[in-house]
């Protein structure tokens, strides 16, 4: 039973004013080891909530999650997390940030240094290892975050809009890096994004979520991630299927957004 299984997950937030928000309703999902899933949806549809539950930061009001057969009850080193920004430890150097996980486990210095060095090579930050993280650019910081997560060798990597704060060019380079790391490490990855293009490029599987209550609206299996591993992402984007899928999903999300707008106008 290797892989992540999510069964009928529901999450309701009770608000202080007595009302409640149904952030997720009956979300079920099976993810095999090594699969790359991207999650797309209008903002407020529960993507972050879903990820926080899988990471173990929130307990769902209903439903069961299992990783490799055992139930998820809290945060654990088996599930690594990459945040949009602000999650690096600015009081540590790049090297210490990357080595944080191994240090916490009490790994011998020598082994740790080896892992850190290897990962710094992989993300191309060998020359910056002594620098403080706040001296790095946004793209470099996210590479540190990726390396820090990988240093811990988790089974699943959860990413919440990891590239959302980057400029378009840096973002494209980082997308290639994510694909490369996925292929090389064979990790199971869940990646949340609000960019349709990114979801298509990086999703071996793609789910589109719908809001109120948050649920899985549609699921795709896509060839682009495989293509992207071996060729330039710009080439992948020229693929005729790519444009077609993009239009289809964009339209779907537009409709959802419009529905939300309409509903809130009606209630106003």
């Amino acid at each position: 039973m290797s892989g992540l299984s999510i069964d009928k997950l529901s999450m309701r937030f009770d608000l202080p004013n007595g009302g409640s928000v149904q952030a997720l309703k009956d979300v079920s999902l099976e993810l095999k080891a090594g699969e790359l899933l991207s999650v797309l949806g209008p903002s407020g549809c529960g993507k972050t909530t879903l990820l926080n539950i899988v990471a173990g930061f929130l307990a769902p009001t209903d439903g069961v999650m299992k990783l490799n057969g055992h139930q998820i009850t809290g945060p654990d080193a088996e599930r690594g997390m990459v945040f949009q920004q602000g999650a690096l430890f600015e009081w540590m150097s790049v090297r210490d940030n990357v080595g944080f996980g191994p240090s916490m486990k009490g790994m011998p210095k020598h082994d740790k240094a080896e892992i850190v060095n290897h990962l710094l090579d992989v993300v191309g930050l060998q020359d910056f290892k002594e620098k403080a993280v706040y001296e790095l650019s946004g793209g470099m910081q996210q590479r540190v975050a990726l390396a820090r997560c990988l240093a811990n060798d988790p089974d699943v990597i959860l990413m919440d809009e990891p590239l959302g704060a980057l400029d378009a060019l840096t973002r494209e380079k980082m997308q290639s890096l994510v694909l490369k790391l996925w292929k090389e490490t064979g990790k199971t990855i869940i990646l949340i994004t609000h960019s349709v293009e990114e979801a298509l490029l990086l999703g071996e599987r793609l789910i589109v979520m719908a809001p109120r209550p948050g649920r899985i609206h549609k699921e795709y299996r896509l060839p682009f991630a495989e293509l992207g591993v071996s060729s330039d992402l710009r080439e992948v984007k020229k693929h005729p299927d790519f444009a077609k899928k993009r239009e289809e999903i964009l339209g779907m999300i537009w409709d959802m957004e419009e529905e939300i707008m309409g509903r809130s106008e009606a209630s106003a």
């Binding site: 945060p75 602000g86 430890f89």
Partner: peptide
């Protein structure tokens, strides 16, 4: 402390004591 830092540290396998020592204290300095 940015909650993302605390979450990140838990996901990296830190214990409560380690969170205190390596995240909360330096962050509050």
């Amino acid at each position: 402390v940015n909650i993302a830092k605390v979450h990140a540290a838990y996901s990296l396998g830190a214990s409560k004591w380690q969170i205190m020592r390596y995240v909360i204290i330096p962050n509050s300095l």
